[in-house]
């Protein structure tokens, strides 16, 4: 970062479109994102797209706190959008970056976040090719909000849809669930708990590429962000008009994440993830896909947690640790810590 920004904060001038704005864009964004598309400084990025179906997505990031164990809002803004593209089987190519900054945000903090975005974009193999910055008065936003849109290409023959789950299909997750939600929960000062957990925040496109290299029979796939694994399973069960049954004892949950859940009365199946995918796959292909997933960092703890079964349409059931059965529905609202 240029030393002229040391100990300086974002002011309304940085969003005015004048010199302060253009300096900030050049010094922080163009410098860091460093690619030919962005450095032309046109009003739009221009690029050619390889043959195939185009996938387009957008998401906004408002996480609090903006830095957490295992990630930060910048990393999240790239992984979230890249993963949304990857879940269709698309190869993510280009991202946009829209920023809403609160007056008073230290420029050093902004720089850290932008660096983190670039690092994550490199990991994913995508380029951040255009952007926008607005500054709002103190109190009108919480430090920094980021929106990213992403574009990718789906190869011919790849057809992954939430309505394709079929009886007999296996349900795979790529690793331990709930770590992101538990991390955010424990970083909230008023709850006063501390645990050795970090967010699972990571890009999944390379993992998905590997999975597609060994199977044409991935029927449905979603990343289990807000609302957790249960919410995704319910969406798939409803869209595919099938019944999904998972076994509680096969769902991987880290010990400290379980500890946070026991103390606060939460269910890890509903906790948010930022690098966890749920894949519905034809059973014959399940072992091959698991094997290749386990060779990757993002998938080394992959496992089967359940299957699509005969039963009432649109319903997800859980065989509890204890041998009982219960229906696990979407939550009405957020999961709140409880005492009873």
């Amino acid at each position: 970062m240029h030393k002229k920004y040391k100990n300086k904060n974002i002011t309304m001038a940085h969003g005015s479109g004048g010199k302060a704005s253009s300096d900030l864009i050049k010094d922080i964004f163009v410098n860091t994102f460093d690619n030919d598309y962005l450095s032309t400084m046109e009003d739009q990025a221009r690029f050619n797209i390889p043959a195939g179906q185009i996938a387009l997505t957008t998401d906004s990031y408002v996480v609090n706190p903006i830095f957490f164990k295992g990630g930060d809002i910048g990393k999240l803004a790239v992984t979230g959008t890249v993963n949304d593209l990857a879940m269709s089987g698309a190869k993510p190519l280009y991202l946009t970056c829209g920023l809403i900054l609160e007056e008073g945000l230290p420029i050093e903090t902004l720089d850290k976040i932008i660096q983190s975005m670039q690092k994550t974009a490199e990991e994913a193999g995508v380029k951040i090719v255009c952007g926008d910055t607005k500054v709002v008065e103190k109190g009108s936003a919480d430090q920094i909000f980021i929106n990213t849109a992403g574009v990718g290409v789906i190869d011919k023959g790849v057809e992954i849809h939430s309505y394709q789950a079929k009886i007999g299909d296996k349900i795979i997750v790529n690793g331990f669930i709930g770590d992101h939600g538990a991390t955010i929960m424990q970083s909230r000062a008023e709850l006063g708990i501390s645990a050795d957990i970090e967010s699972d925040c990571q890009v999944l496109n390379h993992l998905v590429g590997k999975m597609l290299s060994v199977s044409n029979n991935i029927h449905s796939m979603r990343d289990a962000t807000r609302g957790g694994v249960v919410t995704v399973l319910n969406e798939i069960a409803q869209d595919s008009k099938v019944c999904i049954c998972i076994a509680e004892n096969s769902v991987p949950v880290r010990v400290p994440t379980r500890g946070v859940c026991e103390i606060l009365g939460l269910d890890p199946l509903y906790l948010a993830n930022e690098g966890t995918l749920v894949c519905v796959i034809q059973s014959e292909d399940a072992e091959a896909v698991l094997a290749i997933m386990r060779q990757t960092k993002a998938g080394k703890d992959a496992c089967i947690i359940g299957e699509v079964v005969e039963g009432p349409e649109g319903v997800v059931s859980l065989n509890t640790l204890f041998g009982g059965t219960k229906i696990i529905d979407k939550l009405v609202g957020d999961q709140l810590p409880r005492i009873c």
Partner: peptide, 21 residues
């Protein structure tokens, strides 16, 4: 959500269907 009526409303019919299986 754990209230007797709420649980019955949300899960009642379907849980019976699943258990019949």
């Amino acid at each position: 959500t754990e209230g007797a009526c709420s649980a019955q409303y949300s899960y009642g019919q379907n849980i019976d269907l699943i258990n019949k299986k």
